[in-house]
């Protein structure tokens, strides 16, 4: 997932009130960005497919199998999937985002997501649309995602 920054997030400089920043916030002089803390995710995010039913639930399950190319975390747990909708004809539309606009794995990720979405019975074809609002932040990573990232060695 690496966001394209030493550590991400405008306005997320050290020492604000959210409390989940790792230690070290005090010596922020050399580097203005010492924490991934970026406040709160917008309401309704991250989307995790909780409450989805039928074919849509199957698509969410399939998307949990798609991992970020650089670390073993699913794109759903990273908070990248913004919407899944399957119509009566079996046409699946997925909306997703990227951690940063210059992501060099864009085509690979959207392709992996599309292919996964076409695996459940009941999906004839899937289409992926990129969206950049709301802007992705680390706050959109699910608890399971955070745990996986920590296990991988990231300080989040």
């Amino acid at each position: 997932m690496p966001t394209n920054m030493p550590t991400d997030v405008p306005g997320g400089s050290a020492g604000d009130a959210a409390g989940d920043a790792p230690d070290g916030a005090a010596d922020a002089e050399a580097c203005a960005y010492t924490s991934y803390d970026d406040g709160e995710a917008p309401e309704e995010y991250p989307k995790t497919g909780a409450g989805a039913t039928g074919v849509e639930a199957d698509v969410w399950d399939a998307l949990y199998e798609v991992e970020d190319p650089e670390m073993p975390v699913s794109v759903v747990d990273l908070g990248l999937i913004y919407d899944v909708a399957v119509d009566g004809e079996g046409h699946c539309e997925i909306e997703m985002t990227l951690t940063y606009t210059g992501c060099p794995a864009r085509d690979m990720l959207t392709n992996d997501v599309r292919c996964a979405a076409e695996t459940p019975p009941g999906v004839e074809a899937a289409e992926v649309r990129l969206r950049y609002s709301p802007e992705w932040t680390v706050a959109m990573v699910t608890d399971a995602g955070l745990e996986a990232l920590r296990e991988f060695g990231l300080s989040v």
């Binding site: 394209n4 920054m5 940063y100 606009t101 210059g102 992501c103 060099p104 864009r106 990129l130 950049y132």
Partner: peptide, 16 residues
Amino acid sequence: ANVAQDEFGHARLWYD
């Protein structure tokens, strides 16, 4: 290099 990568990313946003 990082700034350039961002700017390529933005170019791609608009070319898209």
